[in-house]
Amino acid sequence: MITLRSEASQGMALSAPATLYVGLLVAAPLGILVVYSFWTQTYVSIDRTFTWENYRLAVEDPLVRHLLIRSVWIAGLVTAATVALAYPIAYFIAFRTRHKTLWLLLITIPFWTSYLLRVFSWKLILGFNGVLNSALMTVGLIEEPLTFLLYNEVAVVLTLAHAWAPFAIMPIYVSLQKIDRSLLEAATDLGCSKLERFVRVTLPLTVPGIIAACLIIFIPTVGDYVTPALVGGSDGKMIANLIQVQFGAANNWPLGATLSLMAMLAVGLVAGCFVLLSNLLARRIR
């Protein structure tokens, strides 16, 4: 005879392996990073006496401050650009087409191809002797290659806005899809113009989707390594590139750990403020 345990303990037992695995691999590395951040690197070994030296260095070094601020700034730009470009598409799929599944599939397929290769491809498109320049010159629109395309912030923003597109479209689409259509009709019946209806009904109702999209994009972007390394040039470098150097060429793990933690802190602070502000704003509009 089988003895069925209580629902609760069965549920806990089944979800335990995944929860423990993920939980352990979130907590343990974080703990180790904190410990490392209070140590110092001597040439070949690690000095394990407690010190705030790394934090002092990180706070006082203008390069670190500069890179941190720029990472947050670029991530903010990327988030704004991606969401602004994606919103009309999500709107289009939710309200304007009957082939929703097809469109959603079309939008997600590029995302499943290698991120590294997509970024690399942008480098080829925007390069001095690249696809865009050579195409424009072949057509005769320009005489000489444009030099402002690659190795700057704009290239980073463009590349990442491309990379994150489905992450912005999906949550916004879901929140648009959830809108009760009779609310829109009511707004029209009560004399709203299309623009008014959009600003006062549709947009406020999609705020949760927009917030979700912003967070999903902003958080990983602050720590992005590949895009600034490939298309950022010296102007577009971000904090992740400096962190990688500490774990690679510079071989200063404690400083790398400190920088990782500071990047995480910056992400947390900005994301937290953003959620608070947008919730306040959403309440205002309504």
Binding site: Y36, D224, I243, Q244
Partner: peptide, 13 residues
């Protein structure tokens, strides 16, 4: 949602 560089560096350590 954890930035890749943070996962990578902390796992390495």
């Amino acid at each position: 949602v954890v930035p890749g560089i943070i996962v990578a560096s902390s796992f390495l350590v």
